[in-house]
């Protein structure tokens, strides 16, 4: 009985105070849209960082005249190092052809011999694409036998790391502010909606309903409002994305920005959470203030 009472009262509350419920849903949906937009920016930022890091590689030069079987073993050893994504073998002959293609000169004709050693282009997993990890992987490769030299763009990686750190810091602060604002706004909105139903709460207390019993219909109401707000926010973000795609076509590469289903699902769940959290806290606080 109590479960069904809480459910039915929660839905009745929504129907009875349509104006307050509409306002709460509207404000909650704006708050969830703010959080959703931050998530889209964060998600795509993360994707971009991963892309940047996946572009990073090391060039490993093998000592001249190393036997083929040794080179094969080296490829296996390098492939086993943690953080190595894949590697491409470039034979001395391939290196010479590449030189000819780029500079228009045949090195064999000029020098009479091929000066290029065998080498590997080693790509690092995006998760290991920091300056520290790259340096560690490079030193492990350099310590293998028959390795002449390991080259990579360390300074570029240091700069990328620095800017990523700054961007993550800004994103975290902005994300926290947006999240905090969303919780605060929704708490105040639901608190107002609860205050509008103080007669109902008063009557429930008068007849001897326990605090948890009083709370439940409001929590149901808050969660329904939160879910509705989540659905509206998803629709709002999708429409805004589509409209921006049409209006800004040719100015911004919006087609590269992805709004994943996980973000939409997250927005719905966040709406539910926001409704549950705000109503729970607000009713608890309201009940605590009165005997």
């Amino acid at each position: 009985m109590s479960f069904f009472f809480s459910l039915s009262e929660g839905f009745k509350n929504l129907r009875r105070a349509r104006g307050a419920a509409f306002l709460a849903v509207l404000i909650l949906s704006l708050a969830i849209t703010m959080v959703g937009t931050s998530a889209v920016v964060g998600w795509n930022g993360k994707k971009f960082i991963k892309f940047l890091r996946s572009q990073f590689d090391l060039t490993v030069f093998v000592q001249m005249d190393t036997a083929d079987e040794v080179v094969i073993q080296l490829a296996k050893d390098i492939g086993k190092i943690e953080g190595v994504w894949d590697l491409t073998y470039i034979s001395p002959a391939q290196a010479a052809r590449k030189f000819e293609k780029e500079f228009g000169e045949n090195v064999m004709t000029i020098l009479g011999t091929n000066p290029f050693p065998a080498s590997f282009i080693v790509r690092i997993s995006p998760e290991f694409g920091t300056a520290v990890d790259a340096s560690y992987i490079a030193s492990r490769i350099a310590n293998l036998n028959n390795i002449e030299e390991v080259r990579y763009r360390k300074s570029l990686l240091v700069i990328v790391d620095k800017y990523i750190k700054i961007l993550i810091g800004i994103a975290m602060v902005v994300g926290f502010i947006v999240l905090f604002a969303a919780v605060l706004i929704s708490s105040y909105t639901i608190k107002l909606a609860i205050f509008a139903k103080r007669d109902l709460i008063w009557t429930m207390r008068l007849v001897g309903a326990t605090d948890s019993f009083i709370r439940r219909p409001f929590v149901v109401e808050g969660m329904v409002e939160g879910l509705l707000a989540g659905i509206i926010a998803v629709g709002f973000l999708e429409v805004a994305y589509k409209v921006a795609g049409i209006v800004l076509r040719g100015y911004l590469p919006l087609h590269r920005i992805e709004i994943s289903n996980e973000i939409y699902l997250g927005m719905l769940l966040f709406g539910l959470f926001l409704g549950w959290f705000s109503s729970n806290i607000s009713v608890r606080k309201y009940l605590r203030e009165k005997i």
């Binding site: 009985m1 109590s2 009472f5 009557t203 429930m204 007849v207 001897g208 309903a209 019993f213 009083i214």
Partner: peptide
């Protein structure tokens, strides 16, 4: 309401 709010069947 007085009965429902106090958990009667």
């Amino acid at each position: 309401f007085a009965l429902r709010a106090t958990g009667y069947k």
